[in-house]
């Protein structure tokens, strides 16, 4: 059976007769809602809100170290990057080079990640990608490579935003989870980029 032909000959079906009326009604309703969003009321907090805040600001800040309960399974982006870079930056030889880029999961307590190591590894990966693209311009013009580079850029921006929020909120569990997720996604995208660039 020729599937592509069969697919082209698939029959068309009529939607229910009042479908457009429904779509139009929804569009009208959304327009009314959107217009009215600008007119939402604002509310007053309780009258002594400032006194409460001022009272708390006068008290000395006692910031407890975060409980070890919040030891998270941190995505080992660091390990990933270091392993990847170590393999990538091996001295050139005549032998066939095999590049492996793996993602590992390690138990790591928050705050123990050496930040300078991470940013240094990030920089080296970025340099590697840029160098490869300078040498292999054709590969880097491929849509999938462009897409991956764009994804990496966006993930890096989002990671920076989360890190900024972590400065304010400390080890907020939701933020830490988000940071781990973003690190994992960055590691996966980086791994795929390196794989394509080193084929």
């Amino acid at each position: 059976m020729d599937f592509s032909k069969a697919i082209q000959q698939l029959p068309e079906h009529e939607p229910r007769p009042d479908l457009w009326d429904r779509v139009e009604a929804d569009l009208r309703a959304d327009a009314v809602i959107d217009r009215t969003l600008d007119e939402l009321p604002v509310f007053e907090p309780q009258a002594d809100a400032w006194e409460q805040i001022a009272g708390r600001l006068e008290k000395p800040l006692v910031r407890a170290w975060w409980s070890p309960v919040f030891t998270w399974t941190a995505a080992a982006a660091i390990a990933t990057l270091i392993v990847g870079l170590w393999l990538i930056l091996q001295p050139v030889s005549d032998e066939k080079v095999t590049i492996a880029y793996a993602t590992e999961t390690v138990e790591s307590e928050l705050g123990t990640m050496p930040e300078s190591l991470v940013s240094s590894a990030d920089q080296k990966v970025e340099t590697f990608i840029n160098e490869q693209c300078a040498q292999q311009t054709v590969v880097c013009q491929k849509p999938e490579v462009k897409e991956l580079k764009q994804q990496l850029h966006e993930l890096s921006s989002r990671k920076e935003a989360v890190e900024q929020e972590l400065l304010v909120f400390g080890n907020d569990p939701a933020l830490v989870q988000a940071q781990i997720k973003l690190e994992n996604e960055r590691a996966e995208v980086t791994k795929e980029l390196v794989r394509i660039l080193t084929i």
Binding site: R22, A25, D26, R28, V32, T36, D38, E39, L40, P41
Partner: peptide, 21 residues
């Protein structure tokens, strides 16, 4: 949710929308 087409009146106010939200 959509058994019938919905007609939202043009005249809703911010307070009404706030209550609905």
């Amino acid at each position: 949710l959509h058994d019938q087409p919905v007609e939202v009146p043009d005249t809703i106010t911010g307070a009404v929308l706030d209550a609905a939200i």
